[in-house]
């Protein structure tokens, strides 16, 4: 199929017909997804006693201090900061290392390529909880315990298999003509990679970035073992400490986690636009 045959077309018009159906379906799906979350957010406006007495009810009375308690705790904000630092660093590391490796695995032919691919995917197959203890001992020996890097580097390592598995087919899908054209124009493979392939792969890159960010944001086991200093704690540890120090304060946990998920959602919103605006008419002749 000749990709150069068509002129670039204007953006799609909204469909006139069928849109009530689209709306209805989208609404139903969004409702089922989001309704339980509304429950969580509202739960933060109650006390644990209220929740125990009447789990299904609305806040009555509306309690503000649960959320206020969470926000005014200085530890919450330091945890947000820690989580952000760790998550952004992890995401950066994962995307950079992952796309380089995926590029090689996708577009080079060499002996041992499939072996290398299998080498990476093995990491997906092993339960993280089992490797945690020897990993912790290793980190201690490397003097990485109780540091940001002690969490970031292993998280990057754990996230690599997923990233490579996702990126490889995306990168492989670009037709050879693209690469040939670049090579003919005097570029070498690496600048083809850097100048042409990477920008075109934005949807895939952003996708793996979002997945890496969310995984890091919610990671619990590794930070639990590695980060002893409370000043370094990330948000999931904060939830745990909060719930433990407030005797399984259910309402407090709900408030805490409602607030904790906001940054991850923000990241997704920002990123989502990148995925959408990815490739419209980008492949021109």
């Amino acid at each position: 199929m000749a990709l150069t045959a068509l002129p670039s077309t204007p953006p799609q018009r909204p469909f006139a017909w069928g849109s009530p159906i689209t709306y209805a379906l989208a609404l139903a799906v969004a409702a089922v997804s989001f309704a339980p979350v509304v429950y969580v957010i509202l739960g933060g406006f109650r006390t644990t006693g209220q929740l125990a007495a009447d789990p299904a009810g609305l806040p009555n009375p509306w309690v503000w201090h649960t959320y206020a308690d969470v926000i005014t705790q200085s530890r919450f904000w330091s945890q947000v900061l820690n989580s952000t630092i760790v998550a952004l660093s992890t995401t950066l590391g994962v995307v950079v290392l992952g796309v380089c490796a995926a590029f090689v695995l996708a577009r080079y032919r060499f002996r041992g390529r499939e072996g290398l691919y299998t080498f990476f995917t093995i990491g997906l197959l092993f339960p993280a909880a089992a490797g945690i203890l020897p990993l912790y001992l290793l980190l201690r020996d490397l003097d990485l315990a109780n540091t940001y890097l002690g969490v970031i580097i292993p998280q990057v390592a754990f996230q690599l298999p997923l990233t490579i598995v996702i990126l490889r087919p995306f990168l492989a899908a670009f037709p050879m003509e693209l690469e040939d054209a670049a090579l003919i124009d005097g570029a070498d493979r690496l600048s083809f990679f850097w100048r042409i392939l990477l920008p075109l792969s934005r949807p895939a890159l952003v996708t793996v970035a979002v997945l890496a960010f969310v995984a890091s944001w919610n990671a619990f086991l590794l930070p639990l073992l590695v980060l002893q200093d409370e000043s370094l704690h990330t948000l999931p540890l904060g939830v745990q400490n909060f719930s433990a120090e407030h005797s399984q304060d259910t309402a407090g946990i709900l408030a805490f986690t409602s607030l904790a998920m906001m940054p991850a959602l923000l990241f997704f919103s920002l990123a989502e636009r990148q995925i959408v605006g990815g490739l419209q008419g980008a492949v021109k002749g």
Binding site: T48, A52, Q248, D249, T250
Partner: peptide, 14 residues
Amino acid sequence: GQAGATSSAGLVAN
């Protein structure tokens, strides 16, 4: 048993 709003302790307390 004890954890939060849905526990058996909660049942008796309320």
